[in-house]
């Protein structure tokens, strides 16, 4: 079993970039944030910014010792380029692969991308028990990989990452 210490020793590039269509939720705020002692959780998502009630609720679930932010994709990419996201233990969440591609196109220097949770929808097919992909998801991931980003799947810190080769 991983101890907190061994996980902390493991090398991670910050910010960690995670695709998860439950956004801020149990696996993130308990599973990852506690194991890796995250200090900042950022959701980069244009959709949520049009839903003020949902935005407020999502920010309200961030534990008090963690800074939580919700930015639009362009702002998140700008902040990352300026070096504002990589100097603390930060996880950046994206709702789906198309948003990850948009973030990359806005100039974010993404090197690795983790698919953490993409749930069933009519247009999606199962890839792993916690990853379902549509043709649009796959097309976006192909383009992201072509830009030199390493993509893997991992739902929780203690589970083994599965490489994704589009």
């Amino acid at each position: 079993m991983f101890s907190k210490f061994s996980l902390r020793k493991k090398k991670h590039d910050f910010p960690l970039v995670r695709v998860d269509d439950r956004l801020f939720h149990g696996q993130v705020i308990v599973g990852w944030a506690q194991a890796l002692q995250l200090e900042r959780l950022i959701l980069a998502c244009d959709r949520i910014l049009n839903e003020p009630a949902l935005k407020q609720t999502l920010l309200s679930v961030i534990p008090p010792d963690i800074e939580g932010n919700i930015f639009n994709l362009e702002t998140a990419a700008q902040k990352w380029r300026k070096g504002e996201l990589n100097h603390d233990r930060t996880m950046l969440i994206l709702e789906h692969p198309v948003d990850a591609l948009k973030l990359l196109r806005f100039g974010a220097p993404v090197k690795t991308l983790t698919l953490g949770g993409l749930h069933f929808r009519e247009e999606r097919e199962q890839f792993l028990p916690y990853i379902f992909l549509s043709q649009w998801d796959r097309a976006a991931l192909r383009e992201i990989a072509q830009a030199g980003v390493t993509i893997s799947c991992q739902d929780l810190p203690a589970t083994k990452p599965v490489p994704y080769n589009p």
């Binding site: 439950r22 801020f24 939720h25 149990g26 308990v30 009630a53 949902l54 407020q56 609720t57 679930v61």
Partner: peptide
């Protein structure tokens, strides 16, 4: 529990 997706989804609905 406060923080899971059931909480977030229900809070969003109760806000309306």
């Amino acid at each position: 529990f406060c923080g899971g997706s059931p909480f977030v989804a229900c809070r969003r609905t109760s806000g309306d």
